[in-house]
Amino acid sequence: MILVVFAVANISTASILVRLAGVQGFVAASWRLILSSTLTLLLLLASKEWVRVDLTLRDLALMTISGIALALHFGLWMMSLFHLTVAASVTIVDSYPAILALIGHYIIGEEYNKWQLAGAGAAMIGVGGLALSSSHGGLAPPGGNPLIGSLLSSSGMVAVAVYFSIGKTMRAKHGTLTYTGIVYTIAAVSSTIITYMLGYKLTGYRLETYMYLAGLALFPMLGGHTIINYVLEKLSLLAATVPVLGEPIGATILAWIILGEPVTGEEALWMALTLTGISLVLLKEEG
């Protein structure tokens, strides 16, 4: 549980780092994935886990789908950050527990008690309310289109649900470094291809920009997503991923402090409901 809290705190920095970097979504996603996949592969090669890697064609196929989904999740969501407030963008992209609950129950075969389902539902309501209240503030970035931003963020939400679902299945068979090393690499290649297909490049930016992009790889990726992939083996799909709904709260607070996007009293209430829901899911997982 301590690891989950640490991971969510790191993931909460992602939207701020993307805004500060100021580059196109898939450019930011590509550098985040290139750097994190390189570090993860080096750790894998240096570990004893490498000699135990045993992949089937089915495993590789699923990891490829997971990697492509991760690339789409990052790229589409990061694009939405320039059309919506941080609070609205992050809350929409994190509204996937309902999909994961269905996948976890009907496909993976997990059982959830009524308190966990109620907690996930409460967290979802809190996230939805936070997104709506944030969008009413009219604080979207200059030139942003809220409709396009909502579509981009929603598409990123579907993609991350696919990524986490496959991760739950694969982590039961493969170590954290094996799974993340392969998936992050596939995601990096996919994101880079999409970046150039869209007519953008990965070079020619200021040193400050690259520092923010390196921060994306170190904190929300290695210190966030990799830890979530680790705990997927220890917790149910719902318990391991619902806490990520705490990201909108951390990101909203950071956006208020660093980017000057204020938090209203209404938003604070929705945040409290989200945290209550997350607490229910985690507490009942232990029980």
Score class of each variant (00 low, 15 high):
Ile2Pro: 08
Ile2Met: 12
Leu3Phe: 08
Val4Trp: 05
Ala9Glu: 02
Ile11His: 00
Ala14Met: 10
Leu20Arg: 14
Ala21Arg: 09
Val27Gln: 09
Ala28Ile: 02
Arg32Trp: 03
Leu35Asp: 02
Leu35Tyr: 11
Leu35Phe: 14
Leu39Asp: 04
Thr40Ala: 05
Thr40Leu: 13
Leu43Gln: 03
Leu44Ser: 04
Ser47Phe: 12
Val53Ile: 14
Thr56Gln: 14
Thr56Pro: 12
Arg58Tyr: 05
Leu60Pro: 02
Ala61Leu: 15
Leu70Ser: 01
Leu70Tyr: 13
Leu72Gln: 02
Leu76Glu: 09
Met78Cys: 02
Phe82His: 15
Leu84Phe: 01
Thr85Ala: 03
Ala88Phe: 04
Val90Lys: 04
Thr91Ala: 15
Val93Phe: 06
Ser95Trp: 09
Ser95Asn: 15
Ala98Lys: 13
Leu100Pro: 05
Leu100Thr: 02
Leu102Trp: 15
Ile103Glu: 06
Ile107Trp: 15
Ile108Tyr: 13
Ile108Phe: 08
Ile108Asn: 07
Gly109Trp: 10
Tyr112Cys: 02
Lys114Phe: 07
Lys114Trp: 14
Lys114Glu: 08
Lys114Cys: 00
Gln116Cys: 08
Ala123Trp: 12
Met124Pro: 03
Met124Ile: 12
Gly126Ile: 01
Val127Ile: 13
Val127Met: 10
Ala131Phe: 05
Ser133Glu: 15
Ser133Phe: 09
His136Glu: 15
Gly137Lys: 15
Gly138Ser: 08
Leu139Ile: 00
Leu139Ser: 05
Leu139Arg: 14
Ala140Thr: 00
Asn145Trp: 10
Leu147Trp: 12
Gly149Thr: 05
Ser150Glu: 01
Leu151Gly: 01
Ser154Met: 15
Val158Asn: 09
Val160Arg: 05
Val160Leu: 11
Tyr163Val: 00
Phe164His: 14
Ser165Thr: 04
Thr169Phe: 11
Arg171Thr: 02
Arg171Glu: 06
Arg171Tyr: 07
Arg171Gly: 07
Ala172Ile: 00
Gly175Cys: 06
Tyr179Val: 02
Tyr179Cys: 00
Tyr184Glu: 06
Thr185Trp: 13
Thr192Phe: 10
Ile194Gln: 07
Gly199Glu: 08
Thr203Met: 14
Thr203Arg: 14
Gly204Arg: 10
Glu208His: 11
Thr209Tyr: 05
Met211Leu: 15
Ala217Arg: 11
Ala217Gln: 07
Leu218Ile: 14
Leu222Gly: 01
Ile228Tyr: 13
Glu233Val: 00
Lys234Thr: 04
Lys234Gly: 00
Leu235Ser: 03
Leu237Gly: 03
Ala239Thr: 11
Ala240Pro: 10
Val242His: 13
Leu245Lys: 03
Gly246Arg: 03
Ile249Thr: 03
Ile249Lys: 03
Ile258Glu: 06
Leu259Phe: 01
Leu259Cys: 04
Gly265Val: 00
Glu266Tyr: 08
Glu267Ala: 06
Leu269Tyr: 11
Met271Leu: 05
Thr274Glu: 04
Thr274Ile: 01
Leu275Arg: 12
Thr276Leu: 15
Thr276Asn: 01
Ser279Ile: 11
Leu280Phe: 14
Val281Tyr: 09
Val281Thr: 05
Lys284Phe: 13
Glu286Leu: 14
Gly287Arg: 15
Gly287Leu: 13
